[in-house]
Structure formats: C-alpha cells, structure tokens
Nucleic acid binder design. Structure first.
Ligand SMILES: [Mn+2]
Ligand SMILES: [Mn+2]
Ligand SMILES: [Mn+2]
Ligand SMILES: [Mn+2]
Lengths: 225, 225
DNA sequence: CGCATAAGTTTGACGACTCAAACTCTAGGT
DNA sequence: ACCTAGAGTTTGAGTCGTCAAACTTATGCG
C-alpha cells in the first residue's frame, strides 16, 4: 500500500535473511543477492528504508528491521503465503511453481481481497510448504518440528515443512509422495554414504542425502513397529 | 508480460475509448483523462506505443491501436474480466468494488494462473457486469441486447449487461435486485418525467431515469401478461 | 475571413530504481 | 602489527513515467 513494490520486496527479503542469520541481521551482500541487484543498489535502497524508519543500519554494518519494518514484512509474508495457498488449494497449481507467481501477486492484493481469500481458504495457518502464515495482527506461530535427518532407522514421522523450496527439490519431493501432511518411515540410514532411505506411506522407498533430509522438517509419530 | 504495467493500462484504455468512439479512434485528451495523467504525459506515452508498433497516431490526430496493440489489449481485458469474475463468484465480493481490485491484479496474472483461473471458473463467457470475456485466442462475442429504456410498458426482459459501472450505480442496481441474469418487467413509463418504473422478479418496484435505464442492457423475454 | 480558445505537443525537470566503476573500510592471516 | 582480499559505499549516469509550463495547431464563432 504505502510502500512501493520494490520496498515490499526489500522488506520481505531482509526479514527472511535476518531470521536465518546467526547475528539476527542481514548483510548487504545477501540482500543484494536475494533481490538480484548490485550491492550499490542495495546500499542506496537500505538508506531509503532507514529514512522511512523501516530499518536500522550503520555504515559497513548489518541491516536490521525496526518494529515498523518487521510489521510491514509480516504483512507481505502473509499476503505471499495466502496467495501460495490459494494457488495450490483452489487453483490446483503445483507447489513448485507457486512461489514465483505469489512473488508478483503479493503486491496487488488489497486488505479486502486478502481477507476474502483468507475466509475462502478457511483461515489456514500454514502454506503449501508448511511455512506458517502470519495472522492479520502479525502473530506467527512456528510449528514444532525437527529435521528429518535426525530421525533414527525405523522411526515414523509426519512431514510438516519443507525448507528447500527450489523447484527441482519440490518436484522431487512431490514425485516421491513426500508432501506436507504425509506420514513416512525411515527404512535405513547409511552414514558412510550420507544417505537415508525413506518410505512414504503408500509410496515406494526413496533415497535422500542427509543434507537434503535436514531441510525437510518432520514431527515424529507414535512409532508402533 | 513484455509490456510494462503502464503500457498495459494505456492499451486497455485506448481499446475501450476507441470502441466507444464514433470515429473508431481515441482522442489524446480522453486517454489522458482515463489514465489520470496530464495530456503531455499521454502524448509521450503514445509516442512510445507507436514506436513499439502497438498504435498509430499522427500529430494532432486520434490514436488507433494496431492489430498487435488490439491483441494485447484484448489479452489484458481477458485478465481483467476473469479476475473480476473470480472476485465475485469465488470470493463473494460485491460487483461494485471488483473493478478497482482487478485494475491492479490484471498485471500480475501469468498465463498459467490465468488458465487455471479460467478452468476453475468454468470458462465463463461474461464477467459480473455482463461484459464479454475475450477468449484466449482474442475472440470476443458481444451478447445480443437492447437498452432497457427501449422497452415498452408491460414488457418483460432479462438483464444481461450493465454499462455504467460507477460504484454508486452498481450499488443502486444490486440493492434494487437488478443484477445480471435477473428477470424484470416494466410497470410504467412516465415520458414527461423521463422516468421508468421497473419491477425485478421477486423484488419491489424501483424508479429509474430513462438515461440510467439506457445504460442497462436487457433481452426481452416471452411476455406472457 | 479571422482569430480566440480548446486541444495537443514540446521542453525541462524530477523521483524512483537501477548499474558500472571508482573508491573506502574491515577483518583475518601471516 | 600489517596488508590485502572481500565487503560495502559513493558517484555519475541512464531509463521509465510523470508534471508544469511554454508553445503550436486546428477550428468554430462572430
Ligand atoms: Mn514480490
Ligand atoms: Mn511458501
Ligand atoms: Mn490496470
Ligand atoms: Mn467488468
């Protein structure tokens, strides 16, 4: 609304980088990379965010959103994830393509349309990738979950979230029957090869590297084997 | 896609102005007014359209879309009207608010989302205002209809299209039970006062000026009175 | 006919966003 | 402690879309 589309993109990128960073701040280089822009462009844009009291930054230091900037970022994230949910649940698009679509649509959704969409979808708490959808008031409940790589052989679990959202990762998981909500069991672990063998309920066994498995979050289920 | 959001807006505006103009061309002043921009801005923008072979224009003359420009305009119109249909049919928004929402969303809809939307809506031929939705190939079938003002006293008809799409007109019509698809009967005509009295099926009698009625299109039904 | 007025055009400027390239700072390794 | 490679910043310039204001053209009224 008030912020330009570009500013919205910067806010969302900084929010996500900050969330994943150890020091709880986003580096200028990563901001630039996330937005596909040169470092100089990012620097001058951040200067604008600071002037608008959306972020804090000192020369050669990291970037951190203010409360106001965080609120704005959560609003954009809410739009993004609700749109993704709509594209998958209502229109039936594949979860590997919806991110790019939402990246554009998120900027064109008014509060009225957003609320109608939210109601239509049944006020979902999670998007198709298992990412939590910020509520209208900015509340964000992360789901309790552990990396699939930490499961032991024979453990059963439910897939709750996918962190690696590159298209080919998502297509591999879908093709394997590994979607959010699916239950699965660890068939075997080969620590030497760095590979786990997983059997999704009702599917056939698939092999994944433990690094790939670490980016799939699960919740262990009552194991009755 | 290729055209910028601004260019898309110009193309759509010129298409609609051209369609409604006697000389089948859009004047620079009306283009500027339609886009809320100064005449100088419109002039320079049209120059760009001409350079892109999307329009033709000679100094101090009217503006006319080329075949290429018309095709592009119809594509945008298709996105606009499908989005409006979605907002009303799927999300339940009022027909008086969807135009402004669609005005922004139309630029963020990819071919893939557009087709999924079209399928989800059952490939509708008309939008909530009765305006025809251009097909993917650019075909556009106008519906056979006459102005309600030309009905005689006692005539029955079905409302098929609303030309005046200002918010208060649309809200008046909806509040009166006059929506697309509704059947109605002319109760009385007062030529002196310039007023018609209409009874929508299952509603109560409303008065409308004949000029307002002229902007409501109907198809007469088997009159069995 | 002639000209005042409306319509359209041109010009110069600006804000938003971007890049390339020159520059400056920081931090880690010797 | 120093130096340097990498990270960050600044500068100058360009594109896009816009406005205000000066200017030009067409035309219809007297
Ligand atoms: Mn975006
Ligand atoms: Mn997502
Ligand atoms: Mn538009
Ligand atoms: Mn419409």
């Amino acid at each position: 609304m008030l912020a330009t589309e570009t500013v919205e993109n910067y806010l969302k990128a900084i929010y996500l980088l900050q969330r994943d960073a150890a020091a709880d701040e986003a580096s200028m280089g990563k901001i630039a990379a996330a937005l596909g822009v040169t470092a100089g462009t990012a620097t001058s844009m951040v200067k604008k965010l600071v002037a608008a009291r959306l972020a804090r930054h000192e020369r050669f230091g990291g970037v951190r959103l203010t409360t106001k900037g965080t609120r704005a970022a959560l609003d954009i994230l809410r739009r993004h994830r609700l749109v993704e949910t709509f594209l998958v649940d209502t229109l039936g698009l594949d979860w590997s393509v919806v991110h790019d679509e939402a990246e554009r649509l998120e900027h064109a959704i008014s509060p009225m349309v957003l609320d109608a969409l939210d109601r239509h979808l049944g006020r979902p708490a999670f998007d198709p990738h298992g990412d939590p959808i910020p509520r209208a008031d900015g509340a964000l409940q992360e789901s309790e979950a552990m990396p699939m790589s930490e499961l032991g052989s024979g453990d059963a679990a439910r897939l709750v979230r996918v962190l690696d959202q590159r298209g080919d990762s998502l297509r591999f998981l879908r093709a394997s029957g590994l979607k959010v909500g699916a239950t699965l069991r660890v068939v075997a672990i080969e620590p030497g090869a760095g590979v786990m063998r997983i059997r999704p309920d009702g599917g056939s066994i698939v092999s994944m590297s433990t690094t790939a498995a670490a980016r799939v979050l699960v919740r262990p289920t009552r194991s009755r084997h």
